[in-house]
């Protein structure tokens, strides 16, 4: 996957996670929704790990290049991709 394709995949799963999150805020005992929320969260984490391995950190906590602090690298989210 290219950087943009992977980023879009992350956005899709992270969005699904967020959507179940808001639903569960007002339906906190819906077991089926809890399961789906967990599945979306796991898939998002998995894709973020793949992204960070190939394209650099999404959070400063994941910056791990010993030679340069790659958190600062372009592009930033508001730059045209």
């Amino acid at each position: 996957m290219t950087r943009n394709e992977l980023l879009n995949q992350i956005s899709a799963y992270a969005f699904a996670e967020k959507e179940w999150n808001l639903y569960l805020d007002t339906h906190p005992t819906d077991k089926e929704a809890i399961k789906k929320h967990k599945a979306m969260a796991e898939k998002t984490r998995e894709l973020i790990a793949e992204y960070e391995k190939n394209f650099g950190p999404l959070t400063s906590m994941s910056a791990d290049d010993p030679d340069k602090f790659n958190w600062i690298c372009d592009p930033w989210p508001w730059d045209n991709q």
Partner: peptide, 11 residues
């Protein structure tokens, strides 16, 4: 925590 991505892509 800041994530270095938009919630929805803008191009």
């Amino acid at each position: 925590n800041y994530q270095k991505k938009l919630q929805y892509p803008v191009n």
